[in-house]
Structure formats: structure tokens, C-alpha cells
Write a protein that binds this DNA or RNA. Structure first.
Length: 427
RNA sequence: GUGGCCGUAGCUCAUCAGGUAGAGCACCGGAUUGUGGCUCCGGAGGUGGGGGGUUCGAGACCCCUCGGCCACCCCA
């Protein structure tokens, strides 16, 4: 095909799907508002160094998945592969960190991965970040908030919360040495990927999908045994709060996160309904990142959720969030004079009924074809103008759904009142 | 980045020792001069992802390429 196509992995979200997106975004926005979180909007492009410093030099995201390019003045810029780094940068730069902050953002992220269902090169996340709160009550709040969102979206019972603590960077370093020592003795039993990770990022071996590797890990030292006292207490308190709120979760001692900046709490919400892309939401604590990026030492916790995956899950679980019909009222007119009257009357109706979805037929056509459109619009009521109505200064008001009464002609002056009544009747 | 499956009308698919394509749904129109949902009739819509090759002839075979999907990798 010679015509221009969208870039691989960057998809159009079509009118048939946008109602789900809008419903999802509305739910998320109102929930976050109800918890007192404020929206922040950051640029999509940042200096490349922001991401390499925060996500980690040797992570796959930074090494081979970023869309990086040179600006006209020679600076290295990148499309953001995630939102936390930019959010932290914005908070530091704008002096937001003098007081605790509860922030959220939404928007496109970019990673050059092999596309699959639930994984695009341009994808969308909503991120939630909190700054300046070191105590585990905020970890708990974020997790409870996310659980409430699944509940509102109708698939809480389709997802599982996995939880772990990876401790301080010191305790993690000690564990890392122990793990490398153990796995080093069994190097030959490791698969190729894990042998590579033994050099680059040993902790990532913990969540390998290879069954043999997992079996080998049964005899490995446990991260929990290396937790420092403060991290252990933090984790215990978090669990106490989640238990008190009645939220069930699975402790996954092998849950580590791919991004370098996490410490202590890490968690993931996973589902089995989306194939290999089972993680719909993930996050954790990253107390060191703000200082690492040049801000004052500030504790932080946050998470991000993948909107494509949430939309897929909504469809999978048959959510009825999306609006079923396009219209409440559909106006049709046959004849030039009737059209004049219809346009005039509908415009004044719009003054009086601002929340009514009022469609006017466009493009002409026979009475019959206009009626078909009215039916397909899903409208509860059709308004009809023809020669008779024009002559009598009336309009025909026809209920389209069963058990909503007969059609009748009403004087134009009484239209708004009659329409209100008819709509109330059909609800 | 690695391995595999796949690519025919807007959508879901069919056809075929290789002889230049069909159905259902959707769309448009008609079956009463001003009335929808059911039914019937008709119409429009495809350079068979793109390029090259084999052949008298390819959507069907081969190669390349682009794209989708599945697993791995990675991650939301």
C-alpha cells in the first residue's frame, strides 16, 4: 500500500472505543479528586539524562527502548518512556516539595518494544505520585485507592494484588551479593537470560518465568531475611493497615521491579485475563530518587497504570460503563420550510435543555430514511417537522422506545415542557 | 531484539491441482403520497497489505518488505 500508515505500535483510538476511554478517565479523575490528589501535566519530551539517571543506565528501557534524538542545537532528548521521572523533575524545578504533595498525571508514553496486545509503542498511563510522606500509611492509601478503582470499574475480583518489600538500598545490596554467590554456584543450571542477568541485574532473576530457574530459586537466600529493621517495620505496618481495611493480597517474595529507583514497598496488580501482559498497575516507594535528581531528600511513593490494559480488561469483563446511546432526542424535518422551523426550534431547545443530547438530522433524505436514523441513534424521542406541523405551528413528538406512549402533536410553544415529560417517562 | 502463526470488501470469514473473487453483518436505495425497529428486493464497496519472482496464467507457490497476533525479552 502506497498510502501513509501509522507508525508501528502507535494505534488510532477510534470513535467506537473512545467512549470506554472517556468513561475510564472520568472514573479515575473523580476517584483521585475524592482522595484529594491534584493533576499535574508535564511535557512529553525531556532531556535524555533525566531518564538514564532515574530509571537506570543498564535497564532495557534506557538501553534499547527509548525514542532518543538530537535536538537542533545538539541536545539529546527523549520521548518519555514513563512518567515518574518527569513528575519528580517538575516537582523539584517548581518548588513543590516544601510541602507534601499528592499528584497525578495522564498521558502518552513511548517505548520501542515489539508490539503485542496490551503493549504498544505509544501507550497511555495514569500515574499517581506522592512526595514528602515517609510513613507507611501513604503506601496503604495508594494501594487502597487503586483497589477502589478496580471495584468501581467492576473487575476487582479479576485482579490480584502482589506485594513485597525490597528494603533499603544497603540491605538490597547485601542480599544481591548473597544471591549472586548462590546462583554463581549453579550457573550452569541457569538459562541464557538469567546468566546474563547475573552480571547486569541479578535481582531480576527472581521473577524469571523459567520453571527450572524458579525451582533453583527455592534453595536461594530470601530477600525477606536481609531486610533492615526499619524496612521490616515499615512493611509490617503497611500490612497491618491493609489487613484492617480488609484488602486481601499475596506476598510475593520474588517481586522486584524493573526500575532501579524503588526501595521498600513494591506492588503489582495482575490479572490472568490479558495473556502475557498481566500487569495492569504497578508501583512502589522510591525515597532516594528526588535527591538523586538534585532535589532535597524527599520520601516518595507512587504507581502507574496502563490504560490500554484497563480498557481491554473492561471489555473482557463486559463492563457497561460506556454510554449505550448517542442521543436523547433526534429531530427530523422534511421540506425546506420544515427544516427552517426545525433548526429554529431546536436551537431554542438547546437554550433550555443544556444537558440533553439533541441530534438534528443532516443531509436530507426521505421521511423513512430519517426515521431509520432516529431509531439507530438510540434516542428516546423523535421530533418531527413536515408540512402539517409548519402550517399548524406544531411539532410531532414521537416516543421511539416501547411502552412510552403514542406520538402526538404539540404546539411549538409547549415543546420544551412536553419533551421534558416525554423523556422522564421513557427513563 | 529472538522464535512462531497470520494478512481476501468497514467488520467476521469463505472460495482455490494456480485460470483475474463470494457470503453474512454494516452501509445506501426501494417495497404506501409524511413515520423507525421485523421481512423482502435491489445497489454501492476489494489494484486479495506492498514489491519482486516462478508460470501461458497467482489472492492462492517462492523471496523480500510492511503490519497484526502469540510466546520470550521487557514492562503499565
Amino acid at each position: 500500500m502506497s498510502s501513509i500508515r501509522a507508525i508501528r505500535g502507535m494505534t488510532d483510538i477510534l470513535p467506537g472505543d473512545t467512549p470506554w476511554w472517556q468513561a475510564l478517565e472520568a472514573q479515575i479523575g473523580s476517584l483521585l479528586d475524592s482522595y484529594g490528589y491534584h493533576e499535574i501535566r508535564m511535557p512529553v519530551v525531556e532531556q535524555t539524562a533525566l531518564f538514564s539517571r532515574s530509571i537506570g543506565e543498564v535497564t532495557d528501557i534506557v538501553e534499547k527502548e527509548m525514542y532518543t534524538f538530537e535536538d537542533r542545537n545538539g541536545d539529546s532528548l527523549s520521548l518519555r518512556p514513563e512518567g515518574t521521572a518527569g513528575c519528580v523533575r517538575a516537582a523539584i524545578q517548581n518548588g513543590l516539595l516544601n510541602t507534601p504533595q499528592k499528584l497525578w498525571y495522564a498521558g502518552p508514553m513511548f517505548r520501542h518494544e515489539r508490539p503485542q496486545k496490551g503493549r504498544q509503542r505509544q501507550f497511555h498511563q495514569v500515574g499517581v505520585e506522592t512526595f514528602g510522606i515517609a510513613t507507611p500509611d501513604i503506601d496503604a492509601e495508594l494501594i487502597l485507592l487503586s483497589a477502589r478503582l478496580w471495584q468501581r470499574l467492576g473487575f476487582l475480583d479479576e485482579v490480584e494484588l502482589q506485594l513485597n518489600s525490597i528494603g533499603s538500598s544497603e540491605s538490597r545490596a547485601a542480599y544481591r551479593d548473597a544471591l549472586v554467590a548462590y546462583l554463581g554456584q549453579h550457573r550452569d543450571a541457569l538459562d541464557e537470560d538469567s546468566q546474563r542477568r547475573l552480571e547486569t541485574n541479578p535481582l531480576r532473576i527472581l521473577d524469571s518465568k523459567n520453571p527450572d530457574t524458579q525451582a533453583l530459586l527455592d534453595g536461594a537466600p530470601s530477600l525477606a531475611d536481609f531486610l533492615d529493621e526499619d524496612s521490616a517495620a515499615h512493611f509490617a505496618r503497611l500490612r497491618e493497615l491493609l489487613d484492617a481495611a480488609g484488602l486481601s493480597y499475596t506476598i510475593n517474595p520474588r517481586l522486584v521491579r524493573g526500575l532501579d529507583y524503588y526501595n521498600r514497598t513494591v506492588f503489582e496488580w495482575v490479572t490472568t485475563r490479558l495473556g502475557a501482559q498481566g500487569t495492569i498497575c504497578a508501583g512502589g516507594r522510591y525515597d532516594g530518587l528526588v535527591a538523586q535528581l538534585g532535589g532535597k531528600d524527599t520520601p516518595a511513593v507512587g504507581f502507574a497504570m496502563g490504560l490500554e490494559r484497563l480498557v481491554l480488561l473492561l471489555a473482557e469483563t463486559g463492563s457497561n460503563l460506556a454510554r449505550p446511546a448517542d442521543a436523547d432526542v433526534y429531530a427530523i424535518a422534511v421540506g425546506d420550510a420544515a427544516q427552517v422551523q426545525a433548526v429554529k426550534s431546536v436551537e431554542s431547545l438547546r437554550d433550555e435543555m443544556q444537558n440533553c443530547r439533541l441530534l438534528v438530522h443532516n443531509g436530507g433524505g426521505s421521511f423513512k430514511s430519517q426515521m431509520k436514523k432516529a431509531d439507530k441513534s438510540g434516542a428516546a424521542v423523535a421530533l418531527i417537522w413536515g408540512e402539517d406541523e409548519v402550517a399548524g405551528q406544531t411539532v410531532t413528538l414521537k416516543p421511539l422506545r416501547q411502552s412510552a406512549g403514542e406520538q402526538r402533536q404539540v404546539p411549538l410553544a409547549e415543546l420544551a415542557g412536553a419533551l421534558h415529560a416525554a423523556l422522564a417517562e421513557s427513563n
